[in-house]
């Protein structure tokens, strides 16, 4: 009897807990977005201003101007907290731009290829095969290394491989949708192909595409940090987690906070976006087709 009385309560608790847990990624990502949007307005930071007396201060130290560097300073006396806040803006901005470019290009190509099949589809399949033979980051390194460091180059070099996943997913969806009776009905009606694609195919790719976009976003943020770490990403004037982490490399033993704290900021964001992406993928039932 007592068991029966307790059980529903336990179930309710568990459900509440899993419901609350499922919302954690949303909260964390919202926090990052908030920091990226508002942070730079509150905290002043100039990457060129290097107050050397303040160099390598531990988190919580008081700097020369009397303020407290909550997360310490780097080898040039620049505030780490400010770098993390400004870096968040850079990471999210580049991630958003890249995913947007990759999404528009990939969805367009994928839907058209899947709907029309034929030669375009065959060409797409070959391009995919070729591009998959290279590790994505290697291709990005080559492209970013060839051109001068700038934001558009970084976005371009990351989009070059990112669009493929979008093209593959939407191609699959379009392939199955073109067999649906409502597409046949529109064709019999004489609806132009472009309208059929826009009205009767594309709206049904939104779920899988959004799920994929979140996963790609995480990969792009990570790849951007990687490029900046290698010194071929953003120009030195821009603040990027990858650069900050690279700057702290030689001080890992003496001043761990320079590399570690932006690293934690980066990892937390990636993990939460990854979880969110998995949730969305599970909900929309489209597993990312891997080769």
């Amino acid at each position: 009897m007592s068991q029966a009385a307790v059980l529903p309560q336990q179930v309710a608790t568990r459900r509440w807990r899993s419901g609350a847990l499922a919302r954690v990624p949303y909260a964390v990502i919202a926090l990052y977005v908030l920091v990226a949007l508002i942070g730079p307005l509150v905290i002043d930071y100039d990457p060129v201003r290097t107050p050397l007396p303040d160099r390598l201060l531990a988190p919580g130290s008081r700097i020369a101007s009397g303020e407290i560097a909550w997360l310490g300073t780097d080898a040039l006396g620049r505030d780490i907290l400010a770098q993390i806040v400004y870096g968040a803006r850079t990471s999210l901005g580049i991630g958003l731009a890249t995913v947007l470019v990759a999404c528009v290009v990939g969805v367009t190509i994928g839907v058209v290829a899947g709907y029309s099949r034929g030669r375009l589809d065959a060409v797409l399949a070959r391009i995919t095969d070729v591009l998959q033979a290279f590790p994505a980051i290697l291709l990005a390194i080559v492209i970013a290394g060839v051109f001068a460091r700038s934001v558009p180059v970084v976005v371009l070099s990351l989009s070059v491989t990112a669009w493929i996943s979008f093209a593959r997913v939407t191609r699959g969806v379009a392939l199955s949708l073109r067999e649906r009776a409502w597409v046949d009905a529109a064709r019999v009606m004489g609806v132009p192909v472009r309208s059929i694609i826009v009205r009767h195919v594309v709206p049904f790719t939104v779920g899988p595409v959004v799920a994929l976009a979140t996963l790609e976003f995480a990969l792009v943020v990570l790849a951007e940090a990687g490029l900046s770490f290698l010194g071929i990403g953003l120009p030195t004037g821009a603040v990027s987690w990858g650069q900050t982490i690279a700057n702290g490399q030689q001080y890992l033993e003496t001043a761990w906070w320079i590399s570690t704290l932006p690293g934690i900021a980066l990892s937390l964001l990636i993990i939460n976006i990854g979880i969110l992406g998995d949730q969305l993928t599970a909900r929309h039932g489209q597993r990312r087709p891997r080769s």
């Binding site: 046949d184 019999v188 009606m189 009205r199 009767h200």
Partner: peptide, 21 residues
């Protein structure tokens, strides 16, 4: 267009022959 209009079709599966959105 006149010929497209002249011949129309009703499909087997009533539900999937209408765009659900």
């Amino acid at each position: 267009p006149e010929l497209q209009r002249a011949i129309q079709m009703v499909f087997q599966d009533p539900r999937s022959s209408l765009n659900p959105r």
